[in-house]
Design a protein around this nucleic acid. Structure first.
Length: 1012
RNA sequence: GCUCGGGUGGUGGAAUUGGUAGACACGUUGGACUUAAAAUCCAAUGGACAAUGCGUCCGUACGGGUUCAAGUCCCGUCCCGAGUACCA
């Protein structure tokens, strides 16, 4: 019987589904193990071979753990709220829920074909009201909480109210807005309830605030920092501008220190922890206040303007020890004090500068690091110690968003300050002993001795740092402070397809809806675009008001501001639902809690999490934040969501680009009839030869040139295809890409012919390209490895692989490609190797057509092969080195085939051993071996040392470290005996040629090295 | 710029604590089977020299070093990838 993978796989997939083989129980005597994949966003394009990579790895591990006797939770679900479904809805009018449902169906079909051991009874979808009910509930909990820095935990807002009522807010150390004024208990108690609400909002862990946000006009929404790549939106690549808006924010900054410290507890890769550390961006230093001096008109005398506090410029610095090196200050152009302090003489210049820098986008400012710009405000600040006036400048190298938006400039110690000072001819004072600052700033820290600095002179960096802070504190002009780069996370999105906020507004103050009335379901809207007045899409809904009497949604027209109020129009961002989904899997159908205490206590948190590294700073940070919050408030018992995390590398696709090289004579006024330009340019290939309509029809995935020719045989296209030299390029595999490369160079050539050699000279990247010259131009074909994506027409579909080779081949091949964590290009060519291996494995259990295993004792040789394999594969799985375990299996099967091994004693354990990797074939073999239950119930084979014990070792004999020959010697031979035996060998003698060796190194069991 | 990875045949990649570099697979070449092809099986396959085999030399980005022994450890240089960036 041949290895009929299609039939075998379909049968076992049905068996698993019918028997609920992978259903996990929340009560078990066994130890638990939780293996989780980052759940997918169900996009319209379906899965490509890159998606399942991580799923296969986690599935192998989950199956392995089951064999090892663990109760394994291995669920899967969908992150089903998101932008693409909404964009699609805007274009086609189809409800996102409908397209999402369709996409999920397709995903499920594709996933099922690969044979994953997911417990689908626990499936979650973030867009399901029964799920987002609890996302809304968590939001409410955040709203009802504040962060107490003294206890270092989140607490109920009612406790804060009690503190305010009894002692005011002066002693409260809370994470809160900056602009809070002190009040006493009496004052608090005298506040109106509205005033109280306003104050509390500044303490809540989710709060409304006028914030400067990243606004993307094309997408019509705000974006989080991690949704912006290189100044443009991650999705779509649209420009992003800064804009002030009232937005919900999450006070994640309150958790900065804990998020940083607890990284040490996690079994994550160092690089991932490092990116989180960078993102949190802790810096220790001091807050210093420089009082402002002003020059009142007509008076030369320096006068102290508003006393410190109200009128000072606050700066954050990591180097308070360098304070005597301050020669000027720089404010960000957006700094609120700029307008107040600018002198009339400087006003014009300053305003022009502010206007100019406001025009420059964030991106331009980032790209243009080199040029130094700035303007003097005319104002001066007073140095806290020397009392000397310090000129105040503005410059856009200072960022409004970091620290206080102002810096004390120490040109001798900071390169940017140095450059600024040089450019504007500002003084530079050297306050470092033995430092040369004639060319650049001196940035040394450890061992640096401060000079020329009054009471700091002679002190080392560390001592000076502490002394400076101490002295500042004495003056009341500064204090030690730790600053974090981590900003509070904006939580509002002006979108339709997301979780609605369970919030309505009474007199402008937000109120939340009680749990028993959740979920607040997403309303129907006529269109998914912003309203004419610029409100988010939910503003289009006719029924989006909250009736506080009946606790239900009612039509907007009934709003009376007494019992019926308007609801929040924003929705939550994508990361809301994904921040806690791991806990919902534990108890997915619970209607009373997001997960029961029992389920939580049993499953705790994720033991192994596998997913892409693109979530390093977004999802993984937010999820940690919410977990810590829920723990603080007693809803969870764990501090961290994911114990161990592995990033699978991306699988890349190979794209072939067809470029058209053509001649053209662009005619301009200047060169009319004078010169001929040979201009090379690329065109969207399909658009040359086929209509735009056709192009759209093909956009379901990668398209080959042959497909276009078959479906749309225009004469030109046919000719082009036929004339391609099949010896030079694989014409049927030729993929057509819409990629457009712009060239910015044109070069002069007086001939009409394209000089290919010259062209290659000019563009070395085309050195290996194929060139084909046609009557209407020259074409070139280039292959490049890049991210696999529908838009790049380089997608390989896993369905086709399953169809042609089977899921087991796909699973093993994806693992065989290389280390899990490494990015690697997909190349289908090598898949036959893995497929042949499975065929050989199949043959081991068959005698020609018949399934047949022998009940006789296996040979010592075969047992050795088996146990060697058990040992290596087990180690490999534990180390997530799946690629090497696949080759171990290949070696094993090659050896057993050579030994003609067909004994049950070897083949039965082998079937279990390979089951995590190739579960379908394993089930088939296991059942043919006479077992009635699924192979998943089988115990994992145990490696026994006794089968591997060797009596001899094939010693490599090397001379001066170079291996020359080997000698088979008993392992129990002593060092001296080995030495004598080796020296007695004829080959050794010939290498020594009668010269006695200088030294002989014998490492028993390893090597012999003779030094001549 | 900084941080973290990495650089090994024609290709993907192996090589626990320094101990036989190139496992396993693809590809290529030759052979068997076949009318033929596919499939399958067998053999060879880092490079150079030698070629009857024995062999010799060079080889893990580059230059040094430590060591009996270095892909592996140390110092310096170059290159590639990822993240991050006027972070005060």
């Amino acid at each position: 019987m041949n290895y009929n993978f299609n039939e075998i796989e379909a049968r076992w997939q049905k068996y698993w589904a019918d028997n609920k083989t992978f259903k996990a129980s929340n009560t078990s005597e066994k130890s638990k193990f939780y293996v989780l994949d980052m759940f997918p966003y169900p996009s319209g394009a379906g899965l490509h071979v890159g998606h399942p990579l991580g799923y296969i790895a986690s599935d192998i591990y989950a199956r392995y753990k089951r064999h090892k006797g663990f109760n394994v939770l291995h669920p899967q679900g969908y992150d089903s709220f998101g932008l693409p479904a909404e964009q699609y809805a805007i274009q086609t009018g189809q409800h996102p829920a409908v397209t999402t449902e369709n996409n999920i169906k397709r995903y499920r079909e594709q996933l099922d074909k690969i044979g994953f051991s997911f417990d689908w009874s626990r499936e979650v979808r973030t867009s399901d009201p029964e799920y987002y009910k609890w996302t809304q509930w968590i939001f409410i909990q955040l709203f009802e909480s504040w962060y107490d820095h003294e206890q270092d935990k989140s607490r109920a807002i009612s406790e804060l109210e009690e503190i305010f009522a009894s002692e005011g807010n002066t002693r409260v150390k809370a994470a809160c807005d900056d602009d809070i004024e002190d009040f006493t208990a009496e004052e608090w108690n005298a506040f109106s309830s509205e005033e109280k609400q306003q104050v509390l909002l500044k303490y809540r862990l989710t709060y409304l605030a006028e914030t400067e946000v990243n606004w993307c006009p094309q997408l019509g929404t705000v974006l989080a920092n991690d949704e912006i790549v290189n100044g443009v939106s991650e999705r779509g690549g649209y420009p992003v501008v800064r804009k002030k808006m009232t937005q919900w924010s999450m006070r994640i900054s309150a958790f900065a220190e804990r998020l940083l410290q607890d990284l040490n507890k996690l079994d994550w890769t160092e690089s991932l922890k490092e990116s989180q550390r960078n993102w949190i961006g802790k810096s220790v230093g001091a807050m210093v206040e420089f009082p402002i001096l002003s020059f009142p008109e007509g008076e030369e005398k320096v006068q102290k303007a508003p006393p410190s506090g109200a009128g000072g410029i606050r700066v954050f610095t990591t180097r308070p020890d360098t304070i005597f090196g301050v020669t000027f200050m720089t404010l960000a152009p957006e700094h609120e004090l700029v307008k107040k302090i600018t002198t009339p003489e400087q006003k014009e210049e300053v305003e022009a500068y502010i206007a100019a820098s406001a025009k420059r986008s964030e991106r331009e400012r980032m790209a243009d690091v080199k040029s130094i710009t700035g303007v003097f405000t005319g104002a001066y600040a007073e140095h806290p110690f020397t009392k000397e006036p310090v000129p105040i400048w503005i410059g856009d190298y200072v960022l409004a968003g970091y620290g206080t938006g102002a810096v004390m400039a120490v040109p001798c110690g900071d390169q940017r300050d140095y450059d600024f000072a040089k450019h504007f001819d500002l003084p530079i004072i050297n306050i470092f002993e033995n430092a040369d600052i004639s060319e650049e700033a001196f940035s040394g820290k450890e061992g640096t001795v401060i000079a020329n600095s009054d009471f700091l002179s002679g002190l080392k960096y560390k001592e000076a740092l502490q002394k400076a802070i101490l002295e500042l504190e004495k003056l009341g002009l500064g204090y030690g402070k730790t600053n974090y780069r981590l900003r509070d996370a904006v939580f509002s999105r002006q979108r339709y397809w997301g979780e609605p906020f369970p919030v309505y507004y009474v007199n402008g103050m937000p109120q939340t809806i009680d749990l028993e009335h959740l979920p607040l379901k997403l309303p129907e809207v006529e269109k998914y675009l912003p309203t004419e007045t610029g409100e988010p899409p939910l503003g289009n809904s006719a029924e989006w008001a909250w009736d506080t009497k009946d606790n239900k949604v009612v039509p907007n027209m009934e709003i009376n501001e007494e019992t019926i109020f308007r609801l929040e129009l924003n929705t939550m961002p994508g990361w809301a639902g994904s921040s806690w989904y791991l806990f919902r899997y534990m108890d997915p159908h619970n209607e009373k809690e997001f997960a029961s205490k029992e389920a939580q206590q049993y499953w705790e948190n994720v033991d192994l999490y596998i997913g892409g590294s693109e979530h390093a700073t977004g999802h993984l940070l937010y999820s940690r934040f919410w977990t810590k919050f829920l723990k603080d408030r007693g809803y969870l018992s764990v501090e961290e969501p994911f114990k161990k995390l592995i990033n699978q590398g991306m699988i890349l696709g190979t794209s072939a680009f067809v470029y058209r090289l053509s001649l053209s004579w662009p005619i301009t006024e200047k060169n009319k009839d004078q010169e001929k330009y040979l201009k090379w340019f690329s065109l969207k290939f399909p658009q040359i030869y086929c209509s735009a309509k056709l192009y759209e029809r093909f956009s379901g995935g990668g398209i080959t040139l042959k497909e276009i020719v078959d479906k749309h045989p225009t004469k030109k296209l046919k000719e082009f295809y036929q004339n391609l030299d099949a010896n030079k390029i694989d014409k049927d595999q030729l993929m057509v890409s819409e990629r457009l490369i712009h060239t910015d160079v044109s070069f002069v050539n007086n001939s009409d012919e394209l000089d290919i050699d010259q062209f290659k000279n000019w563009r070395p990247d085309f050195h290996n390209a194929e060139f084909i010259t046609e009557e209407d131009g020259t074409f070139s074909v280039l292959r490049e490895v890049e991210k696999m994506s529908k838009s790049k027409y380089n997608v390989v579909n896993p369905d086709d692989i399953c169809e042609n080779y089977g899921a087991d081949t796909l699973r093993m091949y994806e693992m065989f490609l290389g280390p899990l964590e490494q990015a690697k290009p997909w190349n289908t060519a090598g898949i036959t190797g893995v497929h042949n291996f499975l065929k050989k494995l199949w043959k081991l259990y068959h005698n020609g057509e018949e399934f047949q295993v022998s009940e006789e004792k296996a040979s010592a040789e075969s047992l050795k092969t088996l146990h060697k394999t058990i040992k290596k594969v087990t180690e490999d799985i534990e180390n997530f080195s799946f690629n090497t375990s696949v080759s171990t299996f290949m070696i094993c099967v090659n050896e057993l085939s050579a030994q003609n091994c067909n004994q049950r004693e070897v083949l039965e354990p082998l079937a279990v051993l390979i089951a995590p990797y190739a579960p379908h074939i394993a089930e088939e073999l296991w059942s043919n071996l006479g077992n009635s239950e699924s192979v998943i119930t089988a115990e994992y084979p145990v490696y026994e040392e006794k089968y591997l014990v060797e009596s001899t070792k094939n010693y490599p004999i090397s001379f001066n470290g170079k291996m020359r020959f080997t000698m088979e010697l008993p392992l129990d031979m002593s060092k001296d005996e080995i030495e004598n035996t080796v020296l007695g060998d004829d080959r050794t003698k010939s290498y020594l040629s009668d010269v006695p060796p200088k030294k002989i190194i014998v490492v028993p069991g390893k090597i012999v090295n003779i030094v001549i």
